[in-house]
Simulated scan of single mutants.
Amino acid sequence: MPLADLNDIRQLLVCPRCRSALAEEPAGFHCTAPACPYHRADAFPLAGPWPVLVDFEHSVVDRDAPMGAMGAQVSVGAENLPAPLRRLVKPPNRVAARNVDLLLRDLPGPAPRLLVVGGATIGNGVGAVYRDPRVEVIAFDIVGSPVTQFIADAHHMPLPARSVDAVLVQAVLEHVLDPPLVVSEIHRVLRKDGLVYAETPFLQQVHAGAHDFTRYTASGHRYLFRRFDELAAGAVTGPGTQLLWSIDHLVRGVTRSAFAGRGTRALLCWLRALDRLIPPDFTRDAAGALFFLGRKRAEEMTAQEIIGYYRGAQASERP
């Protein structure tokens, strides 16, 4: 697994507030800029082996929370089910696998650096990122895990500008308070012509409870990445899968049981096959989740361009 060692990327990390260099001490890190609020010795503590590089004044991450809890295992839901049932409830994400393959083939140089935002677990379909021997993977989340090197808030990434070649942000943007700010940070840390791959829900029920905030249509998702050229975009899951999730949550509500909902979803897993029968334009208007693969550019997409971008089934209804 090409996850970079923290010692190898230590010099790359910067203050999330002012982006000055960091100084290390036994209990953590602090900013080297005297005027920065995080210049004090205990500014960025450790949570187990993970440096907590968070601008606490502008984050939902609480500095006074028990740091041990941040390093706890975060696997939930389908990941805890037996393998056969897990494959029925949460099948392999072939869309992500295909797009990650495209991203990896397009990465430049002999040792490209790829940043995983919200990488506390290895996402469904993106395992190739961690198997490619030439890729240096940097990953963070607001919790620590065996596949992250540090804890951070995606709104204020503790990385310098133009420091990575690609960014992977799968099923994360719905969990941040300000997705445009996070995408702006992604644009900032990417080198010229850097790549981004994102997956974000559209028609999907609330998950992660109080930490679930946002959904995007296909046009809204494209405009979110308006400072990127589109290489590929479309649906991760279609109306059949979306219907399956709705039935799951209907059963949960009627029975007050998440287990009953998941069981019903497993029994009706054949509904996913309906996705294959629906044309892409109809799928875009009723997708469960959407993906975007893009390349960094300087210019923004205009408001006029995003109106013309719409490719859904209602395009023929335009005056």
Rank of each mutant, 00 (worst) to 15 (best):
L3V: 14
A4D: 03
C15T: 12
C15D: 04
P16W: 05
R17S: 00
C18Q: 07
A23G: 06
H30I: 07
P37C: 05
Y38W: 09
P49A: 13
L53P: 03
H58F: 09
S59V: 06
V61E: 06
N80Q: 15
R86F: 14
P91Q: 09
L103N: 00
P110I: 07
A111P: 03
G123M: 04
N124G: 09
G127I: 01
A128N: 06
E136Q: 13
V137F: 05
I138A: 07
A139Y: 06
F140Y: 14
V147K: 02
Q149R: 15
H155E: 13
H156K: 12
V169N: 10
V172A: 06
H175W: 06
L177K: 12
D178A: 15
R188F: 15
V189E: 12
L190V: 09
R191L: 00
E199S: 12
T217Q: 08
R222W: 11
Y223N: 03
G234M: 09
G234S: 01
L243Q: 13
S246W: 10
R252A: 11
G253I: 02
F259T: 15
A260E: 05
R265F: 03
L271E: 08
L274F: 13
P279T: 00
P280W: 02
F282D: 09
D285Y: 01
A289F: 02
E299F: 00
E300F: 12
M301L: 15
R318M: 11
R318Y: 14
